[in-house]
Design a protein around this nucleic acid. Structure first.
Lengths: 346, 346
DNA sequence: CTGAAAGCGCTAACAA
DNA sequence: TTGTTAGCGCTTTCAG
């Protein structure tokens, strides 16, 4: 391994001079600079960042904690985070927790031992014990949270207005004339579920429609759960004419159930998803869904970390992004809904 | 920040004793061990792994270089790698290169400066310049490559038998009675494309069917390219009755084209994909596809790295995994193909 | 069994 | 403008 010492010898200067030209700090004559660079080139020297980190207290590494990279939502988010971090010369260490608090705690411990410059959490469930511990135990460690609100503490938050998303989705259905709308959500213990449900209910109320509690289901944000619950809902004598799925995966499950039951989308059933993930364009008919600006959110989360690192002070900001609806072909005016089905659904 | 020094003071021992109990190296009396551990607990001490790495020359971090985590194939692979690495107490730094050699080179540089314990490459294209540079410049750095063969050098390789996959896929179609089979592949410069094509052609030859060069297309491994090329193929006067898509994304594009043209799958057109990705179960009808054991491959790649780290010698092994076909509903016997279409396709 | 001391590769005063 | 020196937090001989 080539060290700064070897370079110094080769260039006939002291190691501090080498350090200076490497870091462009302090004064160095153009001539020695050149000599050093030549030596660096010749020996193919690479600075040992670990040694530097020991002094700088900066590893140019951040940790990203998510449930599962296989979930496309997190894949998109991860890409956004990694791209942005990379632009700032920062690497990201990936941590898949499966929403397991113990696993999460272990990752956090490891990251801290490694001296990461910050941690980004995007953990959907309302289990913020670890985050709170980190904040209280390492108050100077830059942290930002994507997608969840942490109660009781000040922290960098990057959020999408889930209430608004739920409202917009439901309003779209309402405007198409639907009144019999179901909401299939993910885990109850998540801000996304809670807020989207509030948006759903508020829209219904604004249209003077009573919320049918049988039509509000919390389960998991997965295809199979969407399928299971849609099966349940769509085989009721008084089945909904529209379903608002709390994410696109659930919507995919709804599609599957509808297909098995011979219910056509959108003729017999309108479906709205959430996330505007890759799924939305793959399914048929293309899914109308709520778009969350994932890239922007991931980017902002990194920027907040970078800001904290640079300003060496704990900024605590909350950024709320607004969702938009992407209208595709999974929703239709109620009048167009097949009369037979309408009849049956009364 | 709490250091080993603080712990030593608290426990009334020297720092070397603390180091010893922390690493369970050398002798320590049970009593002092306890005292030290209590101090560790009390002060909530976390070892600074960077400092340790400076001496051990081990960072317990590996780099994973892929084109794009948003591509579900790589998301699955990444999860496999991360899970396995984590089991060995190793973190993974994610690097998305977009198949850009410059970007890749920068990542490699950064990883080496950080002193990663190894690098795993899963870069589909036949652009192995950087890998070769790494191997020659850092012969002791553990490296493994997933999915590609690097010519001219010895290196750890974890491969799937793409030829076999191509053969099996085509044989399945052949056995269903298809003779007019097209192959839509990804980029020509990838081992996957090349080998799968060979398998395709060999199967055809084994059935005494001449390869129609117009029916062999290389483009990109993406939905839109599958769509574009399927459009082209399916609007020919003599259109294929079956398409073997070199990955599931391309197959999704084929579905889209078929739908627009009113061609039913599998009645009018059989489709086989490759990868058995999430897409395969989301589309309708569920896609028959070739399964590559991604998890096993990712796992093996990490194990090879770990082996190299432990044995401190450069093992160079090639592991070939075998693909299997997952039969779902996108393929059908030619006799069942609608006569009208069959007529037209003559 | 324990402590003193050297040093990993680098940075940053401080002198010169 | 450059070199000397003292560490960063830890591990590891080597004495004791």
């Amino acid at each position: 391994m080539v060290t700064i010492k070897d370079v110094a010898k080769e260039a006939n200067v002291s190691i501090s001079t080498v350090s200076r030209v490497l870091n462009q700090s302090g004064y160095t004559s153009e001539e020695t600079r050149k000599r050093v660079m030549e030596a660096v080139e010749k020996l193919n020297f690479r600075k040992n960042l670990m040694a530097a980190a020991l002094i700088n207290k900066q590893t140019s590494t951040i940790g990203l904690i998510i449930p599962d990279i296989k979930n496309i939502f997190y894949a998109d988010l991860t890409r956004a985070v990694e791209d942005t971090a990379n632009a700032y010369g920062i690497n990201v260490v990936l941590c898949n927790t499966d929403n397991n608090l113990n696993k999460e705690a272990k990752y956090i411990d490891f990251l801290i031992q490694k001296g990461v410059d910050g941690i980004i959490f995007s953990t959907p469930e309302v289990k913020d014990k670890n985050i709170k511990t980190v904040i209280s135990q390492y108050p100077d460690l830059p942290v930002s949270v994507i997608g969840s609100k942490i109660r009781g503490i000040q922290i960098n938050e990057v959020l999408v207005d889930n209430f608004e998303g739920g409202y917009i989705a439901t309003r779209h259905l309402l405007e198409l004339g639907h009144t019999n709308i179901a909401f299939i959500s993910g885990i109850l213990n998540s801000f996304a579920s809670i807020e989207r449900k509030k948006g759903f209910e508020t829209a219904l109320k604004d249209w003077d429609i009573e919320v049918n509690e049988d039509f509000v289901i919390f389960d998991q944000f997965k295809i199979e759960n969407g399928y299971k619950n849609a099966m349940h809902l769509l085989t009721k004598p008084n089945r909904p004419t529209a379903i608002f799925a709390a994410n696109d995966a659930i919507a995919v499950g709804v599609y599957k159930a509808a297909r098995e039951l011979g219910i056509r989308i959108p003729e017999d059933l309108s479906v709205v998803g959430f996330d505007n993930s890759q799924y939305a364009e793959i399914v048929y008919p293309p899914l109308t869904t709520i778009q969350t600006p994932i890239f922007e959110m991931g980017k902002r989360a990194v920027e907040l970390i970078v800001k904290m690192i640079k300003e060496k002070q704990t900024v605590k900001e909350t950024h709320v992004f607004h969702p938009t609806i992407i209208k595709r072909e999974s929703t239709a005016i109620l009048e167009h809904t097949s009369p037979l089905r309408r009849e049956r659904s009364k």
